[in-house]
Computed example of a mutant assay.
Amino acid sequence: MEMLPRHFRFEKTSEFFAVSNGVIHVIDGLLLIEESTVKSKVETQPEFSGFRELIGRMDNSDGSDNVFMEALNPEKDGGKSVTLFLPSNEAVSRLPQEQKWRLRNDRAFLTRILDLHLISNSQHPLLTVDMVNGSSTATAQGRRLSFHKTNKDGNVGLPSVRVDGVESRIVQGDIACSNGVIHVVDSVLGLPFLTVLQILQAEPNLSRTFRAIEHSKDLKAALSTSGNNVTIFAPSDQAWLNLNQGDLARMTSHSHLMTKVIRRHVVHGRRLDGQALRREERFTTIPGDIQIKQAYAENDRSKADPPRIVLSWKGHSASIITYDIPAVNGLIHVLDQVLFDQDFDITQASLSRSNTLTSSVFIAGQLFSLGLFLIS
Score class of each variant (00 low, 15 high):
49 S>R: 10
100 K>R: 06
77 D>H: 14
323 Y>T: 15
20 S>Y: 15
302 S>H: 08
43 E>M: 12
198 Q>W: 04
315 G>M: 09
143 R>K: 15
122 S>P: 00
10 F>M: 14
209 T>K: 06
246 G>W: 05
90 E>I: 12
340 F>H: 10
209 T>N: 12
99 Q>T: 13
258 M>N: 05
171 V>E: 13
297 A>T: 08
304 A>F: 10
160 S>P: 08
51 F>M: 08
344 F>G: 04
33 I>A: 12
49 S>L: 09
211 R>H: 13
356 T>G: 07
351 L>M: 11
172 Q>I: 08
336 D>L: 07
153 D>K: 13
273 D>T: 08
92 V>T: 08
245 Q>N: 10
209 T>Y: 08
165 G>N: 10
341 D>T: 06
369 S>D: 10
353 R>A: 06
185 V>M: 01
272 L>Q: 08
105 N>E: 06
267 V>M: 11
101 W>C: 04
323 Y>D: 10
80 K>E: 00
331 L>A: 12
117 H>F: 02
115 D>T: 04
125 P>F: 14
334 V>M: 08
127 L>E: 03
197 L>N: 10
318 A>D: 01
42 V>P: 02
364 A>T: 00
316 H>P: 01
182 I>K: 03
170 I>Q: 00
45 Q>T: 15
305 D>M: 05
215 H>G: 04
323 Y>S: 12
155 N>S: 09
267 V>P: 13
154 G>K: 02
154 G>C: 06
16 F>V: 08
76 K>E: 13
356 T>S: 11
135 S>T: 14
153 D>I: 05
316 H>R: 12
111 T>W: 02
166 V>W: 09
217 K>W: 06
294 Q>V: 10
329 N>V: 07
275 Q>D: 15
189 L>Y: 07
351 L>A: 07
357 L>R: 12
252 T>W: 13
273 D>R: 08
242 N>T: 05
149 K>F: 03
207 S>M: 03
272 L>C: 10
333 H>T: 07
6 R>S: 06
314 K>C: 03
30 L>A: 15
51 F>G: 01
92 V>N: 04
365 G>V: 00
125 P>W: 13
95 L>R: 04
40 S>C: 01
62 D>M: 07
270 R>G: 02
4 L>Q: 05
216 S>Y: 00
63 G>C: 05
96 P>C: 04
90 E>G: 12
325 I>M: 08
220 K>M: 11
321 I>F: 11
181 V>N: 01
270 R>M: 11
24 I>A: 14
308 R>K: 11
150 T>Y: 06
280 E>Y: 03
264 R>Y: 01
53 E>Y: 04
335 L>Y: 05
259 T>M: 03
46 P>I: 15
24 I>Q: 11
122 S>W: 02
54 L>A: 07
112 R>P: 00
273 D>Y: 13
15 E>V: 13
276 A>T: 13
358 T>V: 09
356 T>H: 11
309 I>Q: 00
302 S>E: 12
289 D>W: 05
356 T>F: 04
229 N>Q: 14
99 Q>I: 09
158 L>T: 01
159 P>A: 09
282 R>T: 15
296 Y>N: 10
